[in-house]
Simulated scan of single mutants.
Amino acid sequence: MVEPVYGLDADRVRANLVEAQERIAVAAALSGRGPEEVELLAAVKYVPLESIAVLAQAGVTLVGENRAQDLEAKAGAHPGLFTWDFIGHLQSRKVKQVLPWVRLIHSVSSDSVLEQLGRHKALAGPQLEVLIEVNVAGEASKSGVAPADLAAFAARCPVPVTGLMTMPPLAPRAEDNRRHFAALRELAEQHGLQRLSMGTSQDYEVAVEEGATIVRLGSTLYS
């Protein structure tokens, strides 16, 4: 079980942030892109409310939360300090709670969530976009739309769909997930979608090489 991250030091986080940005720049160059084409999102599921402001001191501007109630508490406590995305599994009953705070929801994958987006989208800012979570590996234990169902699902979404997200299987080596990242990129290209949220602390460089436009980093920033 992952423990909350206490005692964050702004200088240490800043140094880790710079190193991650440098690694992203190298990986982006390998895919023929500039570093400005990849957003670094700090995943704050395990960062307690009282430590969130340290991330701003370290230069973090984009953050993502997995839990609706924590998103509401953290964003509400620091209005305007960050740009917020929702990156966790989204329950339909939590859609209304999330919408006022975020620019992107990374994890839309059920018709019940689509229904709630349509019902409550007036609560969101005009910039709201969603990413559809795709189960590219076909794991029975994970949520996500099957690749074959993507077009029909996207057509039912009541807010703009601008990209895809995936959580590949746990793997001993980052390289093992390259094929899943490549599959998501190919899907996005087929459907004319620009954003690709893929890659975490364990495999973000491979994800960027395969076209990620947003990487979700946690432990690599806080350790």
Rank of each mutant, 00 (worst) to 15 (best):
S109E: 14
A124Y: 00
A146Q: 02
R119G: 05
L114M: 10
E139T: 10
S110M: 06
L117D: 10
S109C: 12
G144C: 03
A148K: 15
A146D: 12
G138K: 13
L123M: 14
K142H: 02
D149P: 02
H106R: 01
A124T: 01
I105Q: 10
Q116R: 15
G144E: 06
V113W: 09
G118W: 02
E129N: 09
A140K: 02
L131C: 01
L123I: 05
D111F: 08
V108G: 04
A148M: 14
A140N: 00
K121C: 01
H120Q: 07
S107V: 11
L104S: 00
D149E: 15
A137H: 12
L114F: 14
D111Q: 06
S141F: 13
E115R: 13
D149I: 04
S107C: 01
L114C: 08
V134Q: 02
V113G: 00
A137E: 08
S110E: 09
I132A: 08
A140L: 03
V134S: 05
E133R: 13
H120S: 12
G118K: 09
E139M: 10
G144K: 10
S141T: 15
V108C: 13
V130A: 10
L123V: 05
S109R: 05
E133W: 03
I132G: 01
E133I: 12
P126W: 10
